[in-house]
């Protein structure tokens, strides 16, 4: 079991990360929160401070994570504020407009930069640090969209797929160093990022449910987890549809 007493959250103001932060604080954790929007981040930190005890450190900084020059500084600052790192959760990301990406490769590049390359940059730095200390856990919010390319969002899917594959290799490398690497694959989550979609039906989960699953997976040092769990079955089917058939489907 991994301790989650000192955790850095990247993309801390995302709905899933915010719920994760609240639950971690309730379990006595100290947190360092990185977010892009200052107002949102301050509102989050103020809230977490009220929920925490005087002995818990709640701190953070504003940063645009697509600027990878910031990454080393942020990890240093987090480590200093917390007095060490037990875990890190990388939760930042955007849901690209597929149509806009199809029309303009600059847009596609930007989305891959945000959703994949910036994550890989953070992972490289974090992995080296945790490998040295020989303990810790890194979790990344990837997506079921990264399991198979679909016409409706394959740019997002490709970025998430890259992250998932990168994490597999990293997990393999760090296994001998007592560092766990967790790939979180949420299905449909009712968050502001999905505000444009119609959220009827039993497939939609609440961010607080996902947060609970993330914490459990990080504590247990799981490899890849679908949240909620039943997405494992859905994706098993989707992954095994022969390409000849899949290419004609409208998914």
């Amino acid at each position: 079991m991994n301790s989650l007493n000192r955790v850095i959250l990247f993309g801390a103001t995302s709905a899933i990360a915010e719920q994760t932060a609240r639950q971690l604080v309730a379990q006595g954790a100290s947190l360092y929160c990185v977010g892009r929007n200052r107002d949102k981040l301050m509102a989050l930190i103020d809230d977490l401070k009220v929920r925490a005890s005087d002995h818990q450190q709640i701190d953070g900084d504003v940063a645009d994570l697509t600027d990878s020059d910031q990454h080393a500084r942020l990890i240093d600052a987090g480590e200093r504020a917390l007095g060490g790192i037990d875990g890190a959760l990388i939760a930042h990301g955007t849901l690209p407009n597929q149509q806009a990406c199809q029309a303009d490769v600059t847009q596609t590049r930007q989305e891959i930069e945000t959703n994949a390359l910036s994550v890989i940059s953070l992972l490289t730095l974090l992995a080296n640090r945790l490998e040295q200390q020989q303990y810790g856990v890194i979790a990344v919010i990837s997506s079921v969209a990264g399991e198979r390319g679909r016409q409706s969002n394959y740019v997002y899917g490709a970025a998430k797929g890259m992250v998932t594959l990168f994490l597999q290799g990293l997990r393999n490398r760090l296994a001998k160093s007592n560092v766990d690497v967790v790939t979180i694959k949420p299905g449909f989550v009712d968050t502001p990022m999905t505000a444009e979609l119609d959220k009827g039906g039993p497939l939609w989960a609440k961010p607080e449910q996902i947060a609970k699953g993330i914490i459990k997976a990080m504590q247990k040092g799981k490899g890849e987890v679908y949240l909620p769990w039943f997405w494992w079955g859905i994706m098993l089917i989707i992954k095994h549809i022969p390409e000849a058939i899949f290419k004609r489907m409208s998914l």
Partner: peptide, 9 residues
């Protein structure tokens, strides 16, 4: 309901 943060206590 999305405005569910504490500000100061």
């Amino acid at each position: 309901r999305g405005l569910d943060r504490f500000i100061e206590f």
